[in-house]
Simulated assay, not measured.
Amino acid sequence: MTEIHGTVAPGFEAVRDAFAANWELQGEVGASVSATVGGETVVDLWGGTATFDDGERDWESDTIINVWSTTKTMSFLCCLLLADRGELDLAAPVATYWPEFAANGKEQIATRHIMGHTAGLSGWDEPLTMDDLLDHDKLVALHAAQAPWWEPGSASGYHAISQGYLLGEIVKRVSGRSLGTFFADEIAGPLDADFHIGTGPELDHRVAHVIPPAFGLGQDPDAAEIDRDSIAWRTLSNPATDAAFSSTIPWRRAEVPAAGGHGNARSVAAIHTLTANGGSVGGQQIISPDGLERIFDVQAEGMDLVVLGTDLRLGMGFGLPGPMLPLPNPRTCYWGGWGGSLAIVDMDLGLSFSYVMNRMESSLTGDLRGAGVLLAMYGALAG
């Protein structure tokens, strides 16, 4: 039986049990789970093994790993913080801050369209390789010149990778800093949170490798049946994403604000403690409560054009309770990462919950491991 390390507060033992059960029932390899309630840590657990360049090691308290799209939640906070300070108008045309972006019919696309996956820029016209994902300037220049793939604002289409470059360029134009630097200076640094968008060499010894899923994005075994002209195919197959690339040094060093963040459940939960508690953590007011309320400005509802068959309700960046994830409280927001990582913020309960692991599933929409631990968390809070 896998040894589980860390602590749980009295009354939350069922969360530990559900976490431990993942090794017995769900093929877990290495993972961490953390939760805060009202700003206090009630769960901080880790266990299993992590794979490194020099062989297999235990998953330690300070192990960090690429969390894929859970990174997006950090990018959302950067934009919400700039908006809260009056430096970024989420409803203003992006071209207000990035004039080149107005080309090819994009004059009225606003930051809120990018935050809500409705901008029509879920991918690129030009064929790309994985190495191109390391070149921020190339990708934003391509998008500045490109026409949207559907009428902006009319529907969501998951901007799986592109969202981060777009938001990153907006943050850079507004603040003068890259999104990774802005995040480190204004959010992670003040909170002393071990989460990084652009990971330096001093952290390499703590970075676990992901265990890739059975197939990568754009490598679906049923791809022969997919329309090659569809928005879904054009988004997810260019480039076809190999999860193993995230274990390379160039990927770690790059800032990929939609998919390249490195952290663990403790750091994700610590950052979203401010989201769950009116922007305040440990006496520090990072963002105002009104600034966070923008999360619940609904940007899209209905079937997504990229994640086919998925009925999404999207706020300002974050997902909101709806058909895909019918969470119990209305003032709850969430997002997750390819393979299974998860961040849940329940403002009604003051709850920040995160689950991070190394063995990836193929799904973009979560899996039973994080869901089971989350259900145990809500059960403990109810009990």
Rank of each mutant, 00 (worst) to 15 (best):
S341V: 01
G319R: 06
V356N: 11
G315W: 04
G337F: 02
C333E: 10
M324T: 14
P321H: 04
V345R: 02
L320C: 08
P321V: 03
A343E: 15
L312A: 12
G337Y: 02
Y355I: 02
D348E: 11
W335I: 04
I344N: 00
V345L: 09
L327M: 12
L351A: 05
R313E: 05
G319P: 07
P321G: 00
L325F: 12
G339C: 05
L342F: 10
L312M: 15
L349R: 15
S354H: 12
G336P: 01
G317S: 10
F318E: 04
G319V: 07
F353Q: 03
G336E: 09
L314Q: 10
W338P: 01
M347I: 07
G317Q: 05
P326N: 02
L314K: 03
L320Y: 11
S341N: 12
G317L: 03
S363K: 13
W338R: 10
N358G: 10
D311C: 06
A343L: 13
D346T: 10
V345D: 01
L349W: 09
G322H: 12
G317Y: 04
E361M: 12
Y355F: 13
F318T: 06
D311H: 12
G336C: 03
G315Q: 08
Y334N: 00
P326G: 10
Y355R: 03
L325K: 14
S363F: 09
G336T: 07
A343V: 13
F353E: 03
N358M: 06
D311F: 04
V356A: 11
L325T: 11
M324K: 14
M357F: 01
C333W: 05
D311V: 01
P330W: 01
S363P: 15
Y334H: 12
G350I: 02
F318K: 05
N358L: 01
Y355E: 06
V345W: 01
S354Y: 09
N329Q: 14
M357R: 09
S352F: 08
G319C: 11
G322N: 10
L320P: 00
E361F: 06
N329S: 13
S363Y: 14
L325I: 06
C333A: 12
G319K: 04
W335A: 03
P321F: 00
M316D: 01
P323A: 13
G315S: 02
C333H: 07
G319A: 10
P326A: 03
